[in-house]
Design a protein around this nucleic acid. Structure first.
Length: 804
RNA sequence: GCGGAUGUGGUGAAAUGGUAGACACGCUGGCUUUAGGAGCCAGUGCCGCAAGGCGUGAAGGUUCAAGUCCUUUCAUCCGCACCA
């Protein structure tokens, strides 16, 4: 008998699949479409177990749909620009280009070894000019739409990367790439940056979250990230000064309760307003704040601050109120200054107590205004508009909606990215490179380390740098910043649908047919990437490129794989699991894939169990051996009882597996397959012969397990007599009629406690069921001598006898 | 602090308000001349010889019936973190 040897079976089918193109998607197909994909990969090292988890999840989904008759597409590509790749290149002393040329083919081999059903004809890589031409084009479109602008900002600066960092790349005060305890804290540095005005889309992005079929925690994280709050910006004049101070508040109704103002120490107005006698204290406080780490500022329980010596005028009543600086007010949120209402804000109250400042209550327990002059007695909620309305007439306030989310910084002072298609001309200012001259090719350099003066290595490429201004023809210089790689990854799902188009970013008709992505999954980027991709989708919709603004219909935020002790695998600990090693040990990709999908629900973090892959290997062997035994046996009709039982087992499994894969419950889908095999083994002991019932049962098991174990299933499918792939149009159809049974087993409870089990005809009347239940010996032992008060019969399930 | 999630055998985990622990690991026993990451069968929540009793973090409640619904509480994990 042919034994199960993955080392023979898997490479064989991988080659055949390549040669026959089973996974090549026909984008013009008349079949219904389906796209399942995982977040594409940074080629920065080896394939690790986390990749194996992510890509297997989407592969199973794509395979399932392909078997169900969909034109199913499981795309593949590389997120090949960016810091990790550049850092690795610097480390190994090769250019990032060379490094990619070596890494990507290795990944391709690994992907094939995992048995993922990728369409390699449509492979993309974000570092190739044919791709980044369109990344640059998107920048140009943003620019033309007024959504790209340049501004000087204090930015987080990592001195190891010599680059600015986005807020989301700063973790606990450290750079996301250098977050070890010995790594330096990030600094603030003023840098001229390009931004995308994602804040213009804040409302749109917020409103459409609810309609998404996404993991709830991610939807919530995005809502919080956008952080919309409705209020007003109110202007306070500063005494003895031409300047004024603007604050954002959600509570204009408490304006009469303002007893002091607080500015962030970093606020630019601070320098020009503090008085001579407060100078030393203010300067000292600013220095002290700079020295504090983010972590220290966060964990400090008590409020600190310093009086500036300056005063502001409350626009509603002309009161003179002191202006303080304190580090509990953040420079980056709102206007960087607040009106303090200690009676109605905990933090302001703490501060007032510390600084011995007055506290005036202006809203009573019934939410009515008090101590508020002409507004007294009004409901606080209603008074908000009235107060703002009054100030608006004198230009001292405007209604405003504020967002926590800030504009997207898209500049990077690094080499390994798409050059920003801008030319700086002394006469014309920053000018877009004409679309006809895209892509702006990233020049190859010998030294691609940052210059360290804040500019990327591109500043050294003198020939590349000097150009004519597209507008006036005068001498000009190219922009040396490159684009944030989050731009590359925010539109790649569209390029997957038309990867070789040289004339336009993609063919609108193809994208219209194939959008949105039906299934997307990953274990990271709840806010950054997933928000940026949605932003680009909405932008594309608004400029008429797509019909559907939301790129991903369904998103599954899947769990990761941890070591057996629950800690993360990491390179530094050296406890990683190498998927290829597991495969090469002889267990094969099928067993590995199946274990990863079986170990835990997809949204739960799975623990690596060294016994896990052998277990799924055993399961696949059991299917394998049964099929081999079957095909070697003689034709013989099944008894009608056995045929009936075979079909019942088969269709029960089909139903469960189909529903569970559809609902992303892969672990229970696999256990349904295991249960079916266990039952088939028992039936085999009675009789095994080649006949329709056995054939149908075995085909169903093979087809239903094919998404998880594609290689073994393919081999067995052919062994069962087929001549074309199990992976296309083979999903068995569930038929309820096979589950109908003549007799059923019913549990009997007395007072809610299980006391017995009875077997009854499936269509037995309630009266007879209850009579049978009451006559059951074990039930009688608990009812005799008691009055029966009530009986409940849930058809097909349970009888409960209530006795006293 | 705020928000979210999760607490079930020795372990990973199953359970539309209806027989808790499917499936798998591990363990125990049996069978088979078994060179194999062996296979097959049976058993395996806890206490108890048994009858039976007890069991889903804890305490209450609703219900004929609660892992599931409600209240309180504890623990763990995740996200955000002085958001004006």
């Amino acid at each position: 008998m042919k034994r199960y040897k993955p080392k023979d079976v898997e490479p064989k089918w991988q080659d055949i699949w390549d040669a026959t193109g089973v996974y090549t998607t026909n984008l013009q197909s008349s079949k219904p479409k389906y796209v399942a994909m995982s977040m594409f990969n940074y080629p920065s090292g080896n394939l690790h177990i986390g990749h194996a988890m992510n890509f297997t999840i989407s592969d199973v989904k794509a395979r399932f749909k392909r078997q169900q008759g969909f034109e199913s597409y499981h795309p593949v590509g590389w997120d090949s620009f960016g810091l990790p790749a550049e850092n690795r290149a610097i480390k190994v002393g090769k250019s990032p280009q060379e490094s990619m040329a070596e890494l990507i083919p290795e990944y391709r081999k690994a992907y094939k070894a995992m048995g993922w059903s990728n369409d390699w004809e449509k492979e993309i890589a974000s570092h190739l000019p044919e791709y980044y031409k369109w990344t640059q084009w998107i920048f140009a479109q943003m620019h033309r739409s007024g959504l790209a602008y340049q501004d000087s900002r204090m930015q987080w600066w990592c001195e190891l990367d010599n680059s600015v960092l986005a807020n989301e790349q700063v973790i606990d005060g450290r750079c996301w790439r250098h977050d070890g305890p010995d790594d330096p804290l990030v600094q603030k540095k003023e840098v001229k940056q390009w931004f995308f005005k994602i804040t213009d889309y804040a409302d749109e992005l917020l409103e459409s979250i609810d309609g998404l079929d996404w993991t709830d925690s991610v939807k919530l994280a995005q809502k919080n990230w956008i952080g919309r709050s409705v209020g007003a910006e109110i202007t306070f004049k500063i005494t003895d000064s031409e300047q004024s101070l603007s604050v954002f508040t959600t509570r204009p109704d408490t304006l009469y309760g303002v007893t002091f103002m607080v500015m962030a120490p970093e606020h630019e107005l601070v320098r020009s307003i503090f008085t001579e006698d407060q100078s030393a204290a203010v300067q000292a406080y600013i220095v002290a704040t700079q020295k504090k780490s983010e972590l220290e500022r966060q964990t400090e329980k008590t409020k600190t601050g310093v009086f500036t010596g300056a005063y502001a005028i409350n626009p509603i009543n002309g009161e003179k109120i002191p202006i303080w600086i304190a580090d509990y007010v953040l420079a980056g949120y709102g206007t960087g200054a607040i009106m303090a209402v200690p009676a109605h804000d905990e933090r302001d109250e703490e501060f007032a107590v510390m600084a011995n400042l007055p506290i005036i209550q202006v809203v009573d327990d019934n939410n009515a205004l008090i101590n508020s002059a002409g507004f007294d007695g009004q409901n606080a909620n209603e008074a908000r508009e009235a107060i703002v309305g009054q100030l608006v007439t004198t230009d001292q306030a405007i209604s405003k909606i504020n967002y926590k989310m800030r504009d997207w910084s898209v500049s990077r002072q690094r080499y390994w990215g798409a050059p920003i298609p801008i030319i700086h001309c002394a006469k014309c200012g920053p000018v877009l490179v004409p679309d006809t001259e895209l892509p702006v090719i990233l020049p190859e350099l010998d030294d691609f380390k940052p210059t360290g003066d804040g500019r990327s290595a591109l500043a050294r490429a003198k020939d590349w740098l000097a150009v004519e201004c597209p507008e006036c023809g005068g001498p000009a210089e190219r922009e040396t910043d490159t684009l944030d790689t989050y731009i590359c990854s925010s539109w790649y799902m569209y390029r997957y649908l038309d990867p070789r188009n040289q004339a336009e970013i993609f063919d609108k008709a193809i994208v219209q047919k194939w959008e949105p992505i039906d299934f997307y999954n990953g274990g990271d980027h709840a806010t950054a990437h997933l928000l940026y991709a949605r932003f680009i989708g909405h932008f594309f919709k608004n400029i008429g490129l797509v019909d559907e603004p939301e790129p991903f219909k369904q998103f599954l935020f899947n769990g990761k794989v941890t070591a057996a002790d629950g800690t993360m695998f990491s390179k530094s600990k050296g406890n990683g699991i190498d998927p290829l090693e597991i495969i090469n040990q002889g267990y094969g990709a099928d067993a590995l894939r199946m274990f990863l999908m079986f170990a835990a629900p997809l949204d739960t973090w799975a623990k690596w169990d060294p016994q896990g892959v052998p277990a799924t290997y055993r399961f696949i062997s059991r299917i394998w051996n049964l099929v081999q035994e079957y095909v070697a046996t003689e034709p013989a009709p099944a008894s009608s009882d056995q045929a009936k039982e075979l079909l019942r087992v088969t269709h029960q499994m089909i139903k469960k597996v189909t529903e569970d894969i559809e609902g992303n419950r892969y672990n229970t889908a696999i256990s349904a397959g295991m249960s079916a095999i266990n039952e088939l083994y028992k039936l085999k002991v009675q009789a095994l012969g080649r006949n329709d019932a056995w054939q149908q049962a075995l085909e169903a098991v093979v087809a239903c397990m094919a998404p998880f174990a594609p290689h073994a299933s393919e081999e067995l499918w052919f062994d069962l007599g087929h001549h074309s792939s199990v992976h296309v149009d083979t999903w068995p159809k569930f038929e309820a009629k096979y589950l109908v049974q003549d007799t059923i087993k019913i549990a009997v409870q007395v007072n809610g406690k299980l006391r017995g089990q009875i077997e009854i005809a499936a269509n037995e009347t309630e009266e007879n069921v209850i009579a049978t239940a009451q006559s059951n010996e074990r039930v009688r032992a608990h009812t005799e001598g008691h009055d029966i008060l009530n009986t409940i019969y849930i058809p097909g399930k349970i009888v409960n006898i209530v006795a006293r």
